[in-house]
Nucleic acid binder design. Structure first.
Lengths: 341, 341
DNA sequence: CTGAAAGCGCTAACAT
DNA sequence: ATGTTAGCGCTTTCAG
């Protein structure tokens, strides 16, 4: 209930001109006398006129809003992506509605529906760890809602997406561990149906195969993606008769959780066991954790660009953008041979 | 350009009733025949009708949106506050437009203006470290824009706010260091004109006074609030003839930056120097940093509640809510006497 | 260069 | 219980 604002009607009345004239003056039309324009502008200023965007949007059938749904925005990863998105779309006058699904499939669908109701012109989504919303997204696609997936995708759907080559970089991580001399490399995987889980798992398996290391099913566990799940993984791995000499975790939170839990148990990293993560985090950097850096800001920018393309072109083709990443080797995976005395 | 949607007009035409009837059916009015209602609902379903919120908002002079401006949302702190805000307002059908000023006063004012143009019904703001936007906020207040400050406030302004008692908790931190036996306690302060800087500084000074420790101006430096600024602080302090035996940093990022920089120089914490932070962070917890925990989610919830009060009541009085906090003592400030052998 | 008028989609008197 | 009508604030033909 902010104080009721002046409208173009008020300006028109005050000046004895028509609303059309006022509108033209305000919108920088050329079909107007400079003097009238000046008067209108002055009066607008005087009356503290502010355009009612909703009226304009109603007329133009736009909303100038896009929606973003991410699993969480507490850790750096998605916030950075969101900043990248805003960088692009704010310049074009779009606002961003941000929702977090809290890794819940049902909250995710609620978010999407809320955003639909808010009449966003498009959606950028990273699905929850257990997202079961294929039908929802299929409907959006059918209804031509512009849609882009980032990071986590639903591979069954033909949707534009911005990702890195998770398989390739998981391969590189595993290969790095192998080249460092580790042989009993465990993999703590994410939630089973998550795209990144499947891809990184495949990269891990491919690397083992490439170096003729037999896969040991016992060294693989699906723990999830949240730090608090790491303990379960360590509990399991450290109770094996033949313990791993290295752990490749699905992401940094799990890797960091492992490091903390291992230290708790008096184990030294990497002397007793090496640890590698994925999607490099600030905490990981501080803890000297080997990980794969993802270009988060750029992911956001690219996703926004892709979305805008769809918004501006009813039948833009779906596109997959695969960005480059980088394996950053740190102390947590020091090569065995460097420690031999 | 999503496929053009059905309107109530379409439903009305298809059914041979008036738009008013359709509107009534859709809005659960009681002045309607159950059978007609049913038919309308069925037809709406069939036509995949979705209400046009902008039209409704235009009519009702609402927007169902509130704006939030924070200095950043990369670290946990503001994201948690935002989640608290959303918890409250989403339930009432409000959407949240989130902007980050990136600690820049001018971007902050741009953000606020963008949000105004988006016709938000109210604003929750935490100002940038060098915010010079008093006039802007004063105008908003004059225009009766609902406004709440969180965490960082502009004390010259009579605005509702949600904070903790920074002075009191800074006192407690300093007192804790004193009781641990530290005497040469440095303070790395934030940006000079920030409310939290002034309050925490006063708490620090009060504690020294309370324990008859003379203030040593040399041990005080205004470094700022961002982690990368910590190095400058350490550079300065470690070049003093009489070095500090403890550091009280304005916040966790600075404290963490100090710890890293000190370790870099081969110094042990707390053996060589103790470090305490403020606004406990996940990284700080992992690094065993003593700090003051802030109830971030609750700050958000309270701020949202305060804002809603203003939105629903044109002249709600300004209110200051001071939430409780907690000093969490960890290894980084181990008492001197516990280490005596 | 300016004005009149229609209409975006919806709700809410006011009739009936 | 339903229909008619006006109008939210704005832009945009169409006339002049």
């Amino acid at each position: 209930m902010t104080s009721s604002n002046a409208t173009i009607k008020d300006i028109a009345k005050a000046l004895g001109v028509s609303v059309a004239t006022v509108s033209r003056a305000l919108n920088g039309s050329h079909e107007i006398h400079p003097l009238t324009k000046e008067k209108v502008l002055a009066k607008a200023e005087e009356l503290r006129y502010k355009p009612n965007i909703q009226a304009r949007n109603l007329l133009k059938k736009r909303s100038n809003m896009i929606g973003v749904v991410v699993p969480e925005f507490i850790t750096f990863f998605f916030p950075e992506i969101i900043i990248g998105i805003q960088e692009i779309v704010n310049k074009l006058g779009y606002q961003v509605l941000i929702c977090q699904s809290n890794e819940s499939s049902s909250l995710e669908s609620k978010n999407v529906k809320m955003l639909e109701e808010s009449m966003v012109e498009g959606l950028i989504v990273s699905v929850a760890k257990n997202s079961k919303n294929i039908d929802l997204y299929q409907r959006l696609i059918n209804e031509h809602m512009p849609l882009v997936f980032v990071n986590r995708v639903i591979s069954e759907l033909n949707v534009s997406q911005v990702v890195i080559d998770d398989r390739k970089w998981a391969f590189k991580v595993t290969e790095h561990l192998i080249k460092c001399g580790y042989r009993r490399i465990a993999h703590l995987a994410g939630n089973e149906y998550l795209s990144v889980t499947k891809e990184r798992m495949q990269g891990y398996l491919n690397a083992l195969a490439a170096y003729d290391i037999p896969v040991n099913e016992n060294l693989i566990m699906y723990v999830g993606v949240q730090q608090e799940r790491a303990k379960a993984g360590i509990d399991y791995l450290m109770n094996l008769k033949e313990k791993p000499d290295a752990i490749f975790a699905i992401n940094d939170p799990i890797a960091v959780g492992c490091m903390l839990e291992l230290k708790q148990r008096g184990m030294k990293i990497p002397e007793d066991i090496a640890v590698a993560g994925f999607s490099e985090s600030p905490i990981g950097r501080i803890m000297e954790l080997t990980s794969v850096f993802q270009p988060t800001f750029e992911i956001g920018r690219k996703a926004a660009t892709l979305l805008l393309k769809q918004i501006n072109n009813y039948d833009a083709p779906t596109e997959t953008i695969t960005l480059d990443a980088k394996l950053n080797v740190r102390h947590s995976t020091l090569p065995l041979f460097k420690r031999v005395r």
